[in-house]
């Protein structure tokens, strides 16, 4: 993809204490560092998302360490139970230091 874009699927509303499934996908090549350039024969340098963190109202809700063995366009699914309304923030950290983020509001009743 020309642009690295995060996507998340989060329900806008949830019941307090009930399990909520969160799905995330980010367009990213996850260059493993093991592939060779077909023309030059040289290794293509590694460039992956190495860390994913989801926080809710500032507190860590879920995180993941990623290695080059995660497929391109990394997909991560997990579940949370929430006590109150708030904002879930998702952050993906790239090898080059870039951080891609997105936020979603969740109404908890």
């Amino acid at each position: 993809m020309a642009n690295i874009k995060p996507r998340v699927k989060v329900p806008g509303k949830a019941k307090a204490g009930e399990a909520v499934t969160i799905k995330t996908l980010i367009s990213h090549p996850m260059e493993s560092g093991q592939r060779k350039d077909r023309k030059t024969g040289e290794l293509i340098p590694r460039k992956i998302i190495n860390k994913f963190v989801a926080t809710y109202n500032g507190e860590t809700a879920f995180s993941m360490d990623l290695e080059p063995a995660i497929s391109a366009n990394p997909y991560i699914e997990f579940s949370v139970k929430l006590a109150e309304s708030g904002t879930m923030r998702f952050e993906w950290t790239d090898d080059d230091g870039s951080v891609y983020d997105i936020e979603k509001e969740i109404q908890v009743a």
């Binding site: 642009n3 699927k9 799905k23 367009s27 366009n73």
Partner: peptide, 12 residues
């Protein structure tokens, strides 16, 4: 449609 990574391209 969320799990299908082809949809990233359609969104682009």
């Amino acid at each position: 449609d969320f799990e299908n990574p082809a949809m990233i391209f359609a969104e682009y």
